[in-house]
Design a protein around this nucleic acid. Structure first.
Length: 497
RNA sequence: GCCCCUGUGGACGAAUUGGUUAAGUCAUCACCCUUUCAAGGUGAAGGCUGCGGGUUCGAACCCCGCCGGGGGUACCA
């Protein structure tokens, strides 16, 4: 890297608590984190709670917990403090107002008193006249009720009378606004395309644009890494930096995550595809945080080598912003499952046990540890999700209540009752009950009846598990134990005849 | 509509930066292994690198024009 890697890099993840942290948000956070750590810099969390209408009470807690779960630790932020506190925009109002005032004083911003109805009327008018966009800009602002069209006295008396008003950015009529994006390279937009953006809302809260620029500067952010949906408004930010006399940070806009049905992965179209949206849903479904992180890292980035399975630290090592792609990437649940399987498999037994407990309990199972260890030993290599134990292999925790219909049809034969009864009898009397003995007993029995071993193996699996798929039969029997196996064999004979 | 970003098999993506038969992973299919299903192993199918022009001895890569996809166009972020 040409970048002198020490120190100065500061990156922030700045979510808005308008909902639970979603998977796309976590990816943005991850890239911020990777970049910061890669360069030995700081990673901070800032809560952008300027929208009172959409504020969600427990969203902030959810965001913090999701970051912790994912292992994305930050150096400054809520609960931690830091030299640039507070990290809540709702607590920094005075700052934004101060800089808005500076912009006002310098003639780069102005008061506007238009009501929502008047704005709507202006847009309707513009549309009727066939103007391509209904903008509040260098042309239309002269027809509106603002400090540019009203006299100084009128403005003052409106202000004194407490008339609702906003502060708008005075965007130049025609200027080329240019910036260098670390991912998209050079981007240029004509200022005539930019709205006179509201900076301070009538409730005196800042909009994203003002708050973001002020905070990024004050918090000494060196790199703004965020989703591509922000690319078109970046020129406004560049203008703001310029008018405030500040040097803008480096910009990097991440490609969007798409739904398999097309379009940005939103809550709605994701759920339609059975894709969990909130990070906590992944946790609850038993996905490994390392796997989710690994998967997310590869959504728009790759190391350029064959290696795909990475730990978080490994990703930090391998990460480089210039290997981030430029086009939108489709979310692929299959690939996530594969990553999950990879990570699950390399998890030491003790760690695996810890992660398996809560999904089990969620399904009402609370096996003792020694038993669980044996079950997991048998199933470790077959698991794709921590939840699988409860959903795919419930029979390790309770007797099957039904028998899979197709399996019965295929595996339950005329001689099954006789054979299983005999097998149950022998198992009951066998000297020991292990993987080896259950197999030896079964094979001997099959031979005596001049039947293939499968004649007993398959119905036994059905009787014991209720289905015809699963791990090695004898290993399974050994784990379940004599009493359980015999009971289930006899019950199957009773039910299936 | 207008503005911005973008386009390599079904999905993700590599390609020493203009160099010859366009990697690999997921998914699919087949075979092997096997008491079943996975896993694992081996292999297959799937591409005029969106389309059309150009530049060049040579283009996925550079230029032009189309077309497609996405985002933005709020007193939301």
């Amino acid at each position: 890297m040409t970048q002198s890697s020490q120190s100065s890099v500061r990156v922030r993840f700045a979510p808005s608590p308008t909902g639970y942290l979603h998977i796309g948000g976590l990816r943005t956070a991850l890239y911020c984190y990777l970049f910061a750590r890669k360069h030995g810099g700081q990673f901070l969390l800032r809560i952008e709670d300027t929208d009172r209408e959409r504020y969600v009470e427990d969203a902030e807690q959810d965001i913090i917990e999701a970051m912790r779960w994912a292992g994305l630790s930050y150096d400054e932020g809520p609960g931690l403090g830091g030299s640039h506190a507070p990290y809540y925009q709702s607590q920094r109002g005075a700052l934004y107002r101060q800089y808005a005032q500076q912009l006002l004083d310098d003639g780069h911003a102005y008061y506007a008193f238009d009501t929502p109805d008047e704005l709507q009327a202006m847009r309707d008018r513009a549309q009727q006249e066939g103007n391509d966009a209904a903008k509040y800009d260098a042309v239309t602002r002269m027809q509106m009720k603002n400090a540019l069209t009203l006299s100084e006295d009128e403005v003052q008396s409106l202000l004194d009378a407490g008339a609702p008003h906003v502060v708008r950015l005075k965007v130049p009529r025609s200027e080329m606004v240019r910036f260098e994006d670390l991912i998209k390279n050079e981007v240029t937009i004509a200022s005539s395309r930019i709205d006179d953006q509201v900076l301070l809302k009538s409730d005196s809260m800042p909009t994203y644009h003002l708050a973001n620029v002020v905070d990024d500067h004050l918090m000494e952010i060196t790199h703004v890494i965020r989703g591509e949906e922000w690319l078109p408004s970046t020129p406004k930010h560049i203008l703001l930096y310029q008018y405030l006399g500040w040097t803008p940070p480096k910009m990097a806009h991440l490609p969007l995550i798409m739904s398999p049905t097309g379009g940005k992965l939103s809550k709605r179209n994701a759920e339609k595809m059975g894709i969990p949206v909130s990070v906590h849903q992944y946790r609850d479904a038993g996905y490994e945080p390392e796997a989710v992180i690994n998967f997310l890292a590869f959504l728009g980035w790759n190391p350029g080598t064959e290696q795909e399975v990475f730990s978080l630290d490994g990703l930090v090592d391998a990460f480089s912003i210039d290997r981030v792609g430029t086009s939108g990437v489709q979310f692929n649940l299959d690939k996530l499952r594969w990553f999950n399987e990879q990570h699950l498999r390399q998890l030491p037994l003790d760690d695996l046990l810890r992660r398996i407990t809560s999904p089990l309990q969620a399904h009402g199972y609370d096996p003792d540890e020694a038993y669980l260890r044996r079950v997991v030993g048998l199933l470790h290599d077959r698991m794709k999700l921590a939840e699988d134990l409860a959903t795919l292999y419930p029979y390790f925790f309770e007797d099957p209540t039904t028998y899979d219909e197709k399996a019965v049809k295929k595996r339950w034969k005329d001689d099954s009752s006789v054979l299983l009864t005999a097998y149950a009898d022998r198992l009951e009397q066998a000297e020991s009950f292990t993987e080896e003995t259950t197999e030896a007993v079964l094979r001997a029995l099959a031979e005596e009846h001049e039947a293939g071993a499968g004649r007993i193996i398959h119905p036994t699996r059905l009787a014991v598990s209720g289905t015809n798929v699963g791990p090695s039969l004898f290993g399974m029997l050994g784990v379940l134990g004599r009493e359980t196996c015999v009971r289930r064999l006899r019950r199957a004979v009773e039910v299936l005849g």
